[in-house]
């Protein structure tokens, strides 16, 4: 197991170096000069411009900047945001809980609905249930989620007025020393109505974000289940007269779920990308929205740090999924 892990890690190092080069290089290529944007219509003299550029470290050779960038990374220093003058890592960490909360709820939702949908569709292959659920899954899979979000807002916030327009919790509630995970904060605060309020705010964004992963998981579960149901040992079990329910729950499900685990893991990247759109639509104060804002403000260090951290998170999750997969399925480990 240790060797497996080390092997995986060794494999990740070149990827990681590539990621730092991409994050650094891309951001250098961004047109537009943040110093000019800061100066605005007032204009800026060439001398003052040079002075500010030097202060921000843009005047040194590019490779020096890169090496320093990587060196600082190892000390957990992702640089300072140009707009807020605060450490990029701090900014990321204050906003990350909002994205994690949204993402986790979405993935959970997707799993809890997607797996049963797929499994039952496989068992009842060809039935109306199979057709409807797989049709729905395909629609979900094809959904432009930014539009889906707008539709839900029109219906539930605009017309029915069941859910709030945006935000994470009613402004009435306030947790001075909160963790940033609103559901948890609301629950431990013990204030009546806080948790309900947080849930009400979370419903629409998480449904929107869960749509595509749910469709993918349902489709994947169905085909994995079909494959397993076709295998000899399941047929044998059936032939032995075990009830279909027992066959499915004991034998088939466990084996069918192995590839599904990978699928769920792979959805993290999808959820990250989806978060950019979902957070924009719902004004959700997470990192997706922060990245968009940073790009438009040409906040180099924030874009750079954000790219790197998001890629890092995706890599970590993929690693964990790989390991989990190795644990569930020993054949992989030794091959």
């Amino acid at each position: 197991m240790i060797r497996f892990l080390l092997g995986k890690l060794a494999y990740l190092i070149p990827t990681f170096i590539g990621i730092t080069i991409v994050a650094f290089g891309f951001v250098r290529l961004l047109p537009g000069d943040p110093v000019l944007l800061l100066a605005g219509e007032r204009g800026i003299t060439p001398e003052r411009h040079a002075e500010l550029s030097a202060q921000l470290g843009f005047d040194r050779p590019i490779w020096v900047q890169y090496l320093e960038f990587v060196g600082n990374l190892f000390q957990g220093d992702f640089g300072l945001s140009i707009t807020t003058k605060k450490p990029v890592l701090t900014e990321f960490l204050t906003l990350f809980p909002a994205t994690i909360e949204l993402g986790l709820v979405a993935v959970t939702l997707a799993t809890l609905i997607g797996i049963p949908l797929g499994v039952f569709a496989a068992i009842k292959r060809g039935s109306w249930f199979d057709q409807i659920s797989m049709g729905t899954a395909l629609v979900g899979y094809s959904m432009p989620i930014f539009w889906w979000g707008l539709l839900l807002i029109i219906l539930f916030s605009g017309i029915l007025k069941w859910t709030p327009v945006s935000g994470r919790i009613d402004l009435l509630y306030f947790f001075p020393n909160g963790t940033g995970f609103m559901l948890y904060d609301a629950l431990v605060s013990g204030q009546s109505g806080a948790f309900t309020s947080a849930v009400r705010h979370l419903i629409l964004p998480s449904v929107v974000l869960a749509t595509i992963p749910m469709a993918v998981i349902a489709r994947q579960s169905r085909s994995a289940m079909l494959e397993v149901l076709g295998e000899d040992y399941v047929r044998t079990a059936r032939a032995k007269g075990l009830s279909p329910f027992r066959v499915v729950s004991i034998h088939a499900l466990r084996n069918a779920l192995i590839p599904v685990v990978t699928t769920i893991g792979l959805q993290v990247g999808v959820v990250m990308a989806g978060a950019i759109l979902t957070e924009t639509i719902f004004s959700w104060p997470g990192i997706g929205k922060w990245m968009i804002d940073s790009i438009s403000r040409r906040d180099y260090p924030s874009v750079q740090g954000g790219l790197l951290l998001m890629a890092g998170v995706v890599m970590m999750v993929n690693l964990i999924v790989d390991l989990l997969y190795g644990v569930i399925n020993p054949r992989i480990r030794h091959s």
Binding site: V22, V27, M272, A273, I276, M291, I295, M310, A311, V314
Partner: peptide, 9 residues
């Protein structure tokens, strides 16, 4: 990288 983010940058 999340694909949309990369495309965006």
């Amino acid at each position: 990288f999340p694909s949309l983010l990369l495309a965006l940058v």
